[in-house]
Computed example of a mutant assay.
Amino acid sequence: MDFLSVVGIIIGFSAIVGGNLLEGGQVTALVNGPAFLIVLGGTLGATLLQFPTAIFMRSLKISLWIFKPQTLMLRKQIEKIVDWSAMARKEGLLGLETLIDLEKDDFAVKGLQLLVDGSEPDVIRDCLELDIGAREFKDLQAARLFEAMGGYSPTLGIIGAVIGLIHVMKNLTDPALLGTGIATAFVATIYGVGFANLFFLPIANKLKMQVFALSQYREMLMEGIVAIAEGENPRNIELKLSGYLDEKLKAKKRGR
């Protein structure tokens, strides 16, 4: 569970509501059904028009990463790769075949299968790099869906404001209806800018970070598999892959 995401949402929402209360306003002043419908409904409609169904469904799936990010156990995976290397040196590459059915990561399964099939290191690298690129592109497109929503939302807020002002102009002779129009105008603007900067854009950027982290994890896995195919010493493989660990980077900083 990523508690920073929860804390960030709470702080952002509380800052808006709290600031309004400190200015002497009321919470109900920020609640406006028509403005909410115009901004969120319009933003969703524009987004659905821009993106295909596959990307939209993928974005719904990876949106769970905001609160439950992918667990990338780099050190444990390095240890596993070193064990694969030792097994390959002892039993040959065909000895890794028994591990394929035990491996849960489909990317690792693909790499192991290429090893067992006796593919050349360059062929293995090319195949896995294409896989990494394709997966990263698909997930980045899904993350950019929220980025697009962050772009549409303020514009829809302006449209909501204009609609509210149109109602104001139509009812200048009826003071009782002026308040509703003015409220829709200003609250729609708040919704548009607030949703974009407090939710949609931060969500997009957080998902992008997760996508890049996952790609780096797969890159590390690819380097380990290629090193096994090249017959490198398990100890050398471990030293090479340790560069992906945050702990090593922190140790370098402390040594400066």
Rank of each mutant, 00 (worst) to 15 (best):
R75H: 08
I55C: 02
D139F: 10
S59T: 10
L99P: 02
M87W: 03
I100F: 07
L115G: 10
L112K: 13
L93M: 12
V109E: 07
I66D: 00
K80D: 00
I62G: 02
I124L: 10
G133P: 04
I159H: 06
Q113L: 06
K138Y: 06
I100Q: 05
L114T: 05
S153Y: 02
I55M: 04
L140Q: 06
L112T: 12
S153E: 03
Y152L: 07
P154A: 00
K90I: 05
L99Q: 15
L112R: 11
D126G: 07
L72P: 03
D106N: 13
I66T: 05
D105S: 10
Y152D: 01
L140K: 15
V123A: 15
K61G: 01
M149A: 12
I132W: 09
L115T: 11
D139W: 07
I158L: 14
D101C: 04
I66S: 02
F146A: 09
K90P: 00
D131R: 09
L114R: 11
V116A: 06
Q70K: 15
S153K: 12
L140H: 10
K80A: 00
D117E: 11
I66E: 00
K61Q: 02
R125P: 01
A54K: 15
G111L: 03
L99S: 11
E103L: 11
A148W: 02
M87S: 11
M87C: 05
S59Y: 05
K68I: 08
L102A: 13
E97I: 06
T98N: 09
L128Y: 05
F67D: 01
D83Y: 08
E91F: 08
W84D: 00
L94C: 11
P121W: 13
G111E: 00
V109M: 13
L145R: 13
P154W: 07
G150V: 01
A148R: 11
R58F: 02
P69H: 14
T71A: 12
M73N: 15
I100S: 12
P154V: 04
L96P: 08
R75Q: 07
R58I: 00
G95I: 09
V82K: 14
L140D: 00
M73A: 14
I158Y: 05
F67I: 02
K110M: 01
V116L: 03
R144H: 09
A108Y: 04
L74Q: 15
G157N: 03
G95C: 09
K138Q: 04
D131P: 04
I81M: 06
F67V: 11
L140W: 03
D139P: 04
T98P: 03
E136K: 14
E79M: 05
D101A: 14
S59D: 00
R135V: 01
A86C: 08
I159K: 10
I62Y: 05
R144K: 12
I159D: 00
A86L: 09
L60D: 01
S119F: 10
L93S: 04
D101E: 15
E103D: 04
F137D: 00
K68T: 05
T71D: 04
S63F: 11
G92W: 08
M73W: 06
W84F: 13
L102W: 05
F137M: 12
E136Y: 05
E103V: 11
F146W: 12
V109S: 14
L114F: 07
A143Y: 05
I55D: 01
